[in-house]
Amino acid sequence: MSQSGATVSQDCITAFNDLKLAKKYKYIVYKLSDDNRQIEVEKASDDKDWENFREQLVNAQTKSKSGQIGKGPRYAIYDFEYSLASGEGSRNKICFIAWSPDDAGVMAKMVYASSKEALKRSLNGIATELQANDQDDIEYDTVLKVVSKGLAG
């Protein structure tokens, strides 16, 4: 398949394991390095407020080769927690989000789309994957519906 060949830094996997096993973080935002060669951790945080996480994605930027700053795609891992509508307690699901805003540059979109598999394959234990292209796609309720398959209360 057509892939960019970008590599995944060890930090990406360490941070993911800290989130998954040690519950150290609530979310991790990954980005490609400026030379598009490697996927790195941009931010790992234990902030539980979805809106702050969302802001992080919405305001993400990418620098093009000529140095222009524009909207940027990102990858993110979010440890989603929700309670079931049936009252059978709460669930935790690790969600992978491929964020690629429609108004980002075509180069950035292409590089992120063709590098996604590399990161996804390095992270074991992702329950749900989400492809998000505009701000509506990363509203809490939209994501909750997808992650919980409509079972959240």
């Binding site: 057509s2 690629s100 979109k109 992120y112 789309a113 996604k116 292209n133």
Partner: peptide
């Protein structure tokens, strides 16, 4: 699809 930022 990739140029539109979509893997799927």
């Amino acid at each position: 699809a990739f140029a539109a930022g979509k893997a799927s």
